[in-house]
Design a binder for these strands. Structure first.
Lengths: 344, 344
DNA sequence: CCAAGTTGGGAAAACGTTTCCAAAAAGGAG
DNA sequence: CTCCTTTTTGGAAACGTTTTCCCAACTTGG
């Protein structure tokens, strides 16, 4: 493929001039510029980004370190991250690390070796080797959807307390007095914050935390299933359930149906994320929506600022959730015994 | 960061020797090797992959050009592609092109500039600019889940005819005689092949193609919705429906429920893909499963062979689908009229 | 008309590797 | 001990850019 020297030769100028024209750096006369562009066009020249990166230290590459790209949550986030990065001229190296710490470490090393300018971590775990790698300390990064306890890491995430409040308020307004909650892993800060918002709101409404059945889930369908089994062994409908993501809500509702409980008739369920499947699920799932696009956009913006070495005022930011009411929530059954047999 | 020269200096050898030790090329004595590894360890040296790629033309980078990473289908495929690539020491640049031809073109150019060694295309469209870019003709690529009409492109995909046959056979065996089908876009070869398998099987069972209600979908939930509306205006239950992917099946079933038809009581539905959501949907969806892992693995293997310049016998290969029977299919209602009024 | 500034552009070094070639060291045979 | 072969090593060029430094040729102003 044609190199910058070929262009220079054809245009009758030096390589430095071609570089200047391309990068619009330094002074060049209108006529040389024209000659250069003509030559570039004629040779279909495209700069070699390896060489450019090597010389200028600007690779325009970011690492995307994601736990599981085949999860609706991360896939969605990844989409918006990609979009935001593309807009700013960055490319993404996809690193799907799963539960494998060795793979995570491998990838972190490789990203360093590839001279990525920054790394974006959707929901990295506390056990992440992130901070173990010496060279990594030098490279800018942003964490999405996650609070890291250890240190002041730049983060963009949902206002999780608000999310818990939103769910609780909605269910209270419908008249519920009995509650359950399937959380995410309790070691994840996100889960604790959501629970905090949920419980304090209930407490303020006069419902003591001890009366709320709380079981720990895993953010996966199966966690929702198991969670619901456990809840039903402690609590009899009608009651209201808050699942900390939609996947678990799907699993939980499935179990409820298998046991012949009606949703929302016997059990009202609120999810979280606003997965596209919510609409098509039956019943369509009421959920606390995350604005993925905002999170991704803010995350990339923040990362770019860190890369450019700009001083940033707020290294951590939250975005507000909003409630999407569908048909998995309704007033509790007792209060409308008259209607009990007419619906459906 | 430490460079190869620093290592050389510390180990008291030349840079070339260090390179030889790292890459295990050429002869080096046991003792120098030891010295070199010690120095590498001491300095925490990691080769700069930009420089290596520039010099050796081996970047160990692949492009992943995907229509929409936030679709369960592609997310799943991407996961397995990533896994297969990682196993072989390749990294992936994530290119999410959506419906935007300009973005596709942009990305193809960028991939060339970044000197990727190959590109993997899950389900590229016929309108793709893939073959318009002059330099691209030189770079190896593999297409997944798609037949390109134009030319003999290396492809790994499902045996779509077999998929259609599988769906038809299953429904016939249950005793169905009235059929409908929501296809993918008809301009996509995949859709036509699936339909072919489906229809010929029905024909062989004595059901003329004219009696099968066929509507065109888009592989999305909403296409399933609209498709079902159209079908129900032409055909009254009971009948059996084959949707060419799970998403459309979800949408179709949703509409059926809204109109108070029972699945599988009134309408049996078969999907395709075996999305994890199938299990949790109600009713759990019977579906023709794609072995994503196989497709991805074969695709990457093929791509690597092309990259290494090996002669490959079969440039195109198919993998076999298999049926997963859940609860969205059942014998048609007529045969059990007694139950007709007991439901709900 | 000359000194001082301004503008445009070229030469060369540098980025960090790999790889070719030749030189040095080591080993073996006579 | 010498000569030849083989193994191990170092030097230097090359990959394709960007960037620093410098010089030539104009402009400009006094």
């Amino acid at each position: 493929m044609a190199s910058i020297k070929d262009v220079a030769r054809l245009a009758g100028v030096s390589a430095s001039t071609v570089s200047r024209v391309i990068n619009k750096r330094g002074k060049t006369s209108k006529e040389t510029e024209e000659k250069v562009w003509k030559a570039i066009e004629a040779l279909q020249y495209r700069p070699n980004l390896l060489a450019r990166g090597l010389r200028s230290q600007k690779t325009k590459l970011l690492g995307l370190l994601v736990p599981d790209i085949d999860s609706p949550f991360f896939a969605r986030l990844a989409k918006y991250i990609e979009e935001a990065a593309y807009q700013r001229g960055y490319n993404l190296i996809l690193c799907n690390v799963g539960e494998d710490p060795k793979k995570e470490k491998d990838y972190l090393e490789v990203l360093i070796q590839r001279k990525v300018e920054g790394i974006i971590f959707p929901r990295v775990s506390d056990e992440s080797l992130l901070f173990r790698i010496p060279h990594l300390s030098r490279i800018p990064y942003v964490i999405l959807d996650r609070t890291l306890e250890k240190e002041e890491a730049p983060t963009v995430k949902l206002d999780n307390i608000a999310a818990g409040i939103l769910a609780a308020t909605h269910l209270l307004k419908l008249g519920h007095r009995k509650f359950a909650c399937i959380t995410g892993p309790q070691k994840i800060g996100v889960s604790r914050e959501r629970l905090e918002g949920f419980l304090t709101t209930l407490t303020q409404a006069g419902i003591p935390p001890e009366d709320v059945v709380i079981v720990e889930g895993d953010f996966r369908i199966d966690g929702g299933r198991k969670g619901m089994e456990k809840i039903l062994s402690h609590l009899s409908p009608p009651f209201a359930l808050f699942c900390m993501n939609d996947m678990m809500a799907f699993g939980a509702i499935q179990v409820a149906k298998e046991k012949n409980w009606q949703v929302p008739g016997d059990i009202s369920v609120v999810g979280l994320d606003n997965n596209p499947l919510c609409e098509v699920f039956s019943p369509p799932l009421t959920t606390v929506a995350q604005p993925f696009d905002q999170i991704a956009k803010l995350g990339i913006t923040l990362l770019c600022k860190l890369i450019e070495g700009k001083r940033v005022r707020k290294r951590s930011m939250t975005v507000s959730p909003y409630l999407v009411i569908r048909q998995s929530t309704a007033p509790p059954r007792e209060q409308q015994t008259g209607e009990q047999f007419t619906r459906e």
